[in-house]
Design a protein around this nucleic acid. Structure first.
Length: 466
DNA sequence: TTTTGAGTTGTTCGA
DNA sequence: GTCGAACAACTCAAA
């Protein structure tokens, strides 16, 4: 042993658990395996500037809050979280060496960046074993395959049938290793303290309990953006791994139609992870090459108006403002706003994906890319390209009382429901009665939907003809 | 190998 | 107001 390392009794077996997006101790295969196979474990988190730079401040703050909660849980067990900043491919082997660890345990991630990073860490660890587990999904990426092709299903429904019929892989059971922090490490960066939620896995479990009281209403309420209890609000917890998808699915079960419908959505989450794991190119490219040939419009001002919630279509603006204000947007409205960017403005879906990537607290690349490609009609089992959402029809159907629009576009609040979804359709007198002047207090619609629709159909048809 | 059935979330048009 | 067809044919999965 070289000098400078802490002297460690040779019969003490040490493991490092390198946390990434699995910020929990229960139901965590990497943590369980390490605590079962070792005498003591070091809990490490590396603040890696590269993915952090992709994140907006809000997601960064949520991450830090969850890390603080993880640290608190570890302190209850007599240890603490070791935090280091920098390049994990250097830091992880350093920590393994400093602690004389014989194993490093991780839960794997599907992204290309994560896979290349982990491969390099494995190489640099030398004789220290990198033990990789899957903890973030119900079924591990790559484990569900089509019987006929041997690869991932290209259509969701057959994937889902196999997914539901496949027995769960067994996860390791946790042991009693001591939680050890060898050095003080760095302290966590500060947040602006505005996060008004209970962080960590206890918060996540509370949110699941709350959801269990409403999940039976899911099929009827999931599409109402004004309804705070219509969806689970668990997306960010799944993304940070403060709760496991497997635990959620097992607790919810399939005993009622609402429960079955909700668990089916977790299968969608697994499917997009399977797809991106098998085909990393989906992060940037359409499933079929010709769909990459759509001549997208270059329209920075229109993209900017969309981001700001100033398109003149109230439901679109409500959604974009909810995103800007909270880092979250209701699923139905994600579809409407995304469809508006791609199919009304004919702007490249990747630009919308990049905006959501920065803004969403629950951003996860597999889900973001999968869903944007679904809306754009470019991905596997996507919406057909000629299916173009009408933002006014969607608004009247899913926000009939205008509650969601009034919440996020308050300058329109005085309009009666009949006029709220398409204010340009009513006369200036009625607008004036509500204190509105189009083009001044609220924008004129950026595009005529009928015209935009024809433009998009033509652009996609031209791409397909190539 | 061939056949058959099926496919998240829609919109528009005309009878 | 309600209904069915067209959108556009295609690919995938499994028997």
């Amino acid at each position: 042993m070289t000098s400078g390392k802490p002297s460690v009794a040779p019969d003490v077996r040490t493991s490092v658990v390198w946390f990434r997006r699995d910020l929990r101790l229960s139901d965590n295969p990497a943590w369980a395996a390490a605590t079962a196979s070792s005498d003591r474990v070091v809990a490490l988190f590396v603040l890696d500037p590269r993915p952090l730079n992709d994140a907006g401040n809000r997601r960064r703050d949520v991450l830090i809050s969850h890390l603080a909660a993880l640290d608190a849980s570890l302190r209850e067990r007599g240890g603490a979280l070791l935090v280091r900043s920098g390049d994990p491919t250097k830091i992880v082997p350093e920590v393994a060496s400093e602690t004389a660890a014989s194993e490093v345990h991780v839960n794997a991630d599907v992204t290309l960046y994560a896979r290349q990073r982990d491969a390099l860490v494995k190489e640099r660890l030398g004789s220290v074993r990198l033990a990789s587990h899957w903890g973030g999904f119900f079924h591990a990426p790559g484990s569900i395959r089509s019987a006929s092709s041997g690869s991932v299903h290209k259509v969701f429904t057959p994937f889902w049938k196999v997914w539901a019929d496949t027995e769960l892989a067994e996860w390791p059971t946790a042991g009693n290793a001591e939680v050890w922090r060898p050095t003080e490490g760095e302290s966590l960066p500060s947040t602006d303290g505005s996060a008004e939620f209970v962080a960590g896995e206890s918060g996540a479990h509370d949110r699941l309990s709350e959801w269990l009281e409403h999940v039976d209403g899911y099929p009827d309420r999931r599409d109402s953006p004004a309804d705070e209890l219509g969806t689970s609000h668990l997306s960010a917890d799944l993304r940070f791994g403060t709760i496991s998808a497997r635990h959620v699915a097992e607790v919810v079960g399939t005993a009622t139609p609402g429960r079955g419908a909700f668990v089916r959505q977790l299968a969608w989450r697994d499917w997009y992870a399977h797809l991106l794991f098998e085909r990393p190119s989906l992060a940037r490219h359409a499933m079929k090459p010709e769909m990459d040939q759509v001549q997208w419009r270059v329209a920075p001002d229109e993209l900017s108006a969309w981001k700001l919630g100033q398109t003149g279509y109230p439901i679109v603006d409500a959604g974009m403002r909810q995103l800007a204000a909270t880092g979250w947007m209701h699923n139905r409205v994600r579809m409407i706003t995304a469809s508006f960017l791609v199919k009304d403005l004919l702007v490249d879906w990747r630009l919308g994906e990049a905006h959501f990537r920065r803004e969403l607290v629950d951003f996860e690349i597999t889900q973001n890319v999968g869903n944007w490609q679904w809306v754009a009609g470019t991905g596997p089992d996507a919406s057909p390209y000629f299916r173009i959402f009408n933002p006014v029809t969607q608004s009247r159907k899913f926000d009939p009382d205008g509650e969601y629009i009034r919440r996020w576009v308050p300058e329109l609040a005085a309009l009666p429901n009949k006029a709220l979804h398409a204010p340009w359709e009513v006369g200036p007198l009625e607008l004036a009665g509500a204190g509105i002047t189009l083009g001044e207090t609220y924008p004129e619609p950026m595009v005529d939907h009928g015209v935009a629709r024809q433009r998009t159909l033509a652009a996609y048809a031209a791409a397909k003809a190539q």
